[in-house]
């Protein structure tokens, strides 16, 4: 049953699974939903794998499929839980001595991302991965100019969420 195609795919998937995990973490609020979305993205990737022609980098293609699945094909649409409920200790952090560890930065980044819309999340994720505007525009299907404008707005929003006044 294990064709060469499947073996290759699983190898690529194992190496690059962090991409899917990042998308899942950005688009879901709990472990169950995370696992569900992870599965759906993996299935969609596998279904589309034979059509992957290598025109773009594998990771860029993976991002596109993962984001498309999270934005439009994923069936679950649960109510968003406010991040305060998710991270009950987040307010207390401000009373602690400021510790700029990478882990904390990552935590606050995810908290901020959770407050963005589905499309803004996609923009931010692609920005954080250092994708070019050309790639971002291609991935989302909008013009490069539009991608820049949307990105600037989203970055402003993200900054506000990360550093509330």
């Amino acid at each position: 049953m294990n064709s060469e195609l499947e073996i290759n795919f699983i190898k690529e998937l194992e190496t690059n699974q962090n991409i899917i995990h990042k998308v899942c973490k950005a688009y879901t609020n709990n472990q169950d939903d995370h696992n569900d979305l992870f599965q759906e993205i993996s299935i969609q990737l596998w279904k589309a794998y034979d059509k992957f022609r290598g025109e773009s980098k594998f990771t860029t293609w993976m991002y596109r499929v993962a984001l498309n699945t999270a934005i439009s094909l994923y069936r679950k649409s649960k109510k968003r839980i406010p991040t305060d409920e998710l991270f009950p200790n987040s307010k207390e952090l401000t009373y602690e001595e400021y510790d700029d560890t990478k882990e904390k930065q990552l935590d606050s980044l995810y908290q901020a991302i959770h407050r963005l819309t589905d499309i803004e999340k996609a923009l931010v994720l692609l920005y954080l991965e250092d994708k070019s505007y050309k790639d971002i525009a291609l991935c989302l299907g909008i013009s490069e100019v539009n991608a820049r404008v949307k990105m600037n707005r989203t970055k402003v929003k993200l900054k506000e969420l990360l550093n509330p006044i």
């Binding site: 499947e6 699983i10 759906e40 993996s42 299935i43 596998w46 699945t69 094909l73």
Partner: peptide, 15 residues
């Protein structure tokens, strides 16, 4: 690899 292999053969739940 084993878990990933099982995962891709599960049923999709897309809209």
């Amino acid at each position: 690899k084993n878990s990933l292999n099982k995962l891709i053969h599960k049923r999709s739940s897309s809209i």
